[in-house]
Design a protein around this nucleic acid. Structure first.
Lengths: 220, 220
DNA sequence: TTTCATGGTGTACATATGATTAGGTGAACA
DNA sequence: TGTTCACCTAATCATATGTACACCATGAAA
């Protein structure tokens, strides 16, 4: 599953076991847990592979601290889903905190407005930089229905730079809204609803993108 | 956020810190990590609260093992989203492995068919029972478009008993498919597509529900 | 009053766990 | 042939970490 070709088969096997262990148990394995799994007679066999994996950037740990792993996945192993061999222990993990609601209709104050910005600061300050710090917001309103985003859906936002055409959570003149970003070269960027009954939103002053919508989640 | 009213304010605070720490850091805190957070002069202050939280069923741990927490959330704290005060450190975590593809058209063999059942066995055997063992499957076909489930969407499946009207991943006569389950009292259950161009599916022999679809995820 | 749960401080202990050093084997390679 | 490297055994060490015991204070319940 890890196509990092610089890793050896054994290293991949160990990396898989570690993340699989975390998935099954909810916490990371100890060195000796790994040792047992691979029937090693010495913990040093594990240490060697862990050092190699760290050197190659496949994982990080906190020196001296127990069970403090951090897996670095080669950014979106989901590519070419059909072409990829689906392994027995495939496990692609998503972790999303739900923070509040965002208006997909006309711009409106976020519910519990203080929370969002505050949480995003927390996210920036969060210990590890590599952890995907996406979060979810509940959608209010119908201005995105042509993009099949409905009232009550939850959108997963990844805080990052937006490109033209991205659906973004944006602060426009101090109000938070979910819209498609139109950012043509040499022109002022603006926001566009995916519903012809809504007009384009041209910012009077600020247009601050909080993050890019990556996915919609709708409960059944 | 935790409405377990039997917990004291301090215990809730600690529970929140623990899960928030796991969210931010990617691994669980040690007793002394918690001690520092609360400015305790003794680790035993933490131990007391942890004991209380364990006794009340709010969390579990592995005795003697470092950083091995397991939070027991009071099943769906998401109820009454509007009425609930959204706290500063709200964080509702979902973890979903993606296993393979399922046909939403006519019943077809699952891609990499061995994997699904095998993985589900693995899931059953997984260490902790309380961990939400949901998984995701990619949808193929258009038989559920009236339920707004499109080709390429991913559905989150929770392995559990299905009720009438649930959208389920089911084995019907040995083939896996995604359909709505119709199970009227006294009648044979069958599967119904959400697209009038598809007929109802009445099982000849087996109808085994693998899990209930809880949500749709669509990448943007 | 007594009892009990809550919420602590302080000290000490046992061990789970990460880390180190020394050495061994076999395959690849120039 | 010697060198390197992935891979492993063995024994040991240092400490991070869970746990226990003694003790104190407060407030609610029996």
């Amino acid at each position: 599953m890890y196509t990092m070709k610089e890793l050896t088969a054994r290293q991949i096997e160990m990396l898989d076991f570690i993340s699989d262990y975390e998935w099954r148990q909810g916490f990371w394995p100890s060195i000796r847990n790994i040792q047992v799994q691979f029937n090693y007679k010495s913990t040093n066999a594990v240490m060697g592979h862990l050092r190699a994996l760290e050197r190659k950037g496949a994982l990080e740990r906190i020196p001296g601290q127990a069970r403090t792993f951090k897996i670095n996945r080669p950014d979106q192993p989901q590519a070419a889903f059909e072409e990829r061999e689906i392994p027995d222990n495939a496990s692609e993990v998503v972790e999303i905190p739900v923070y509040g609601a965002i208006a997909a209709g006309y711009p409106d104050r976020v519910e519990s407005s203080g929370a969002i910005s505050k949480l995003q600061v927390d996210i920036q300050n969060a210990g590890f930089s590599n952890r995907k710090q996406s979060f979810a917001l509940e959608v209010r309103g119908d201005s995105m229905i042509d993009a099949e985003i409905y009232d009550g859906d939850r959108i997963i936002i990844e805080p990052r730079e937006a490109r033209d055409g991205d659906i973004v959570a944006a602060l426009i003149d101090g109000e938070v809204t979910l819209k498609r970003l139109i950012q043509k070269a040499g022109e002022h960027p603006y926001l566009k609803a995916e519903n012809k009954n809504y007009p384009e939103l041209h910012p009077l002053n600020d247009l601050e993108v909080q993050g890019v919508a990556k996915a919609v989640v709708r409960a059944l």
